[in-house]
Amino acid sequence: MSNIPLNIDWQQILLHWMNLAILVGGLYFILFKPVKQFMDKRQQHYKDLEDQANGKLKEAEDIKDQYQAKLDGVEVELHEARAKVQQAVEKSTQEQLAQAKKQAQQIVDKARIEAEHSKEKVMKEAQRELKQLATEAAEKIAFKSDVDPFDQFLNLAEGGKGNEIR
């Protein structure tokens, strides 16, 4: 052993190996592994956060698409609703118009009836007055006047102008 150059000693090399084995093993279990585990855990944590963010982003995209589709549907619905409302308004207008016409017809009919009544009443009144005038004229002719009764009657019938002339 002592003939090996550079004072190489196999026993000491083995002792160095033992030392290195203790060092590498010790450092691995005491420092390397826990620190690496922590780093991996942190990496996983941030990866999870990223995945969550991506998931939420995708979810938001889906919701956006859904709402976009709904929005597109709303346009159609809006047209339909507008058409329905328009139809309803038209129907209502027609009904109101018909009712107004009906009321107007009723008013006209009523007015006509009333006018008829008034006419009849006026006619009756006129006839009554005429009768009265005729009676009065007859009385005058018969009892007071020296003129021709027929002329008096005519004068009275024409509004009493003959009397006024005289």
Binding site: N19, G26, I30
Partner: peptide
């Protein structure tokens, strides 16, 4: 033995003690 072997074991001891201190006091507070 050569002095370097004693140095080697001393270095190992220093490193392992340091690692143990870091493991006990620092790593739980990471």
């Amino acid at each position: 033995v050569n002095p370097a072997l004693i140095s080697a074991f001393t270095v190992t001891a220093i490193l392992l003690v340091l690692a143990a201190l870091i493991r006990i006091f620092a790593i739980p507070r990471f």
